[in-house]
Amino acid sequence: MDGHRCPGEDVTVSVLATVARFLARSAYEIPEKDLRIPLERITTAPPSGFVVSGFAVPPADRSAEDQHPA
Rank of each mutant, 00 (worst) to 15 (best):
S14C: 09
L35C: 06
L23D: 06
S48L: 08
V52F: 08
A24G: 02
T44N: 10
V57I: 15
L39Q: 09
E65R: 04
V13H: 08
E40D: 11
S14W: 08
S63Q: 14
L39V: 14
R5P: 02
V11H: 10
F22W: 09
V11A: 14
T43F: 07
K33H: 13
P58K: 00
S53F: 04
S53M: 14
D2A: 15
A45H: 13
L23F: 07
E65S: 01
L39P: 00
I30P: 01
A27R: 05
V19K: 04
I30H: 00
P58C: 03
E32F: 10
A17I: 02
M1C: 12
R36K: 12
T12K: 08
D10L: 12
D66C: 14
D2N: 15
P47W: 00
R5D: 15
M1E: 09
A24I: 04
V13F: 06
V57P: 01
T43M: 06
E32K: 10
E40A: 02
S48R: 03
I42W: 07
L35W: 03
L35T: 01
R25F: 02
T43L: 10
R41G: 08
G54M: 04
D34G: 00
S26K: 07
G8M: 04
E29L: 02
S14Y: 05
P47T: 00
L35H: 06
T43G: 07
T18Q: 14
P58F: 01
V19C: 08
S63G: 05
E65Y: 06
S63E: 05
E65I: 10
I42T: 13
T44E: 12
E65M: 11
V15W: 12
A45L: 10
D2V: 11
S53G: 04
A56L: 15
A17D: 07
R25P: 00
S26T: 07
R25S: 14
L16F: 13
A17E: 12
L39N: 11
R5Y: 10
